[in-house]
């Protein structure tokens, strides 16, 4: 009895985790948090920095909100959620400023803007406030990994085509033969972000990775 319950918990944990990767990928399927996705996908470094920030905030807010969600009356639900999220974001902001100054600089206002990232409030409302702490952790991890996959895809394409080379964490990985001299700068410009996400989304629809609406 106890054992089968434990197994089903594991199975459910796995299910909540994997759904965030593709089936309800926050960027390509739920289309949440577009602003940071497009803005910070200019380099792999920025993408990973943003992922780290989202991971800490989403994990924290999902844990806290799933733990206290029951005691929060409906009328103050949103204000309380917002205060919790804003506090976590400020903590991340200060920690990044102190320990990862370069990432802090290049993320700019998109680090504090994690507060209004629809992914976080969306998960708090739609999932964490109704589910247990354990599943909320699974949900947070899954959504973050899904977010990271999308960000890495976008930033890899944009950085490689837009600068002609790939540098991550100060390590130079490779330079493309012709593009290294003449990079296609449009990919690194804001316009490039719209182009790449539009084409990727169409590609995923065409190949059936994500369902049509």
């Amino acid at each position: 009895m106890d054992r089968s319950k434990k197994e089903s918990t594991m199975a459910r944990f796995k299910k909540e985790f994997t759904k965030g990767l593709i089936i309800s990928n926050p960027v390509f399927v739920l289309v949440l948090g577009l602003c940071p996705t497009l803005a910070v996908s200019t380099s792999i470094d920025n993408a990973l920095g943003m992922t780290l920030a989202v991971l800490i905030v989403l994990l924290g807010s999902n844990i806290i909100i799933s733990a206290i969600g029951r005691f929060v009356p409906n009328i103050t639900r949103i204000p309380i959620f917002i205060v919790i999220i804003a506090t976590l974001v400020t903590v991340v902001n200060l920690l990044f400023h102190a320990n990862l100054p370069d990432t802090y600089e290049s993320l700019g206002i998109f680090l504090p803007l994690v507060v209004v990232n629809c992914i976080i409030l969306g998960r708090a409302e739609a999932f964490a406030s109704k589910n247990s702490v354990v599943y909320s952790i699974a949900d947070a991890l899954g959504i973050t990994v899904g977010f990271m996959l999308a960000l890495l895809m976008l930033s890899f394409i944009r950085q490689v085509l837009g600068t002609g080379s790939l540098t991550a964490f100060g390590i130079h990985c490779f330079t493309l033969p012709v593009l290294g001299e003449h990079p296609i700068s449009i990919f690194i410009l804001p316009a490039g972000a719209f182009l790449v996400i539009g084409l990727l989304m169409a590609l995923f629809k065409r190949t059936g990775v994500i369902k049509n609406d």
């Binding site: 005691f71 929060v72 009356p73 204000p79 309380i80 205060v83």
Partner: peptide, 12 residues
Amino acid sequence: PIILLTIVVVIS
């Protein structure tokens, strides 16, 4: 609701 919001803000 008001008490709870106050508690949350104070902790924050």
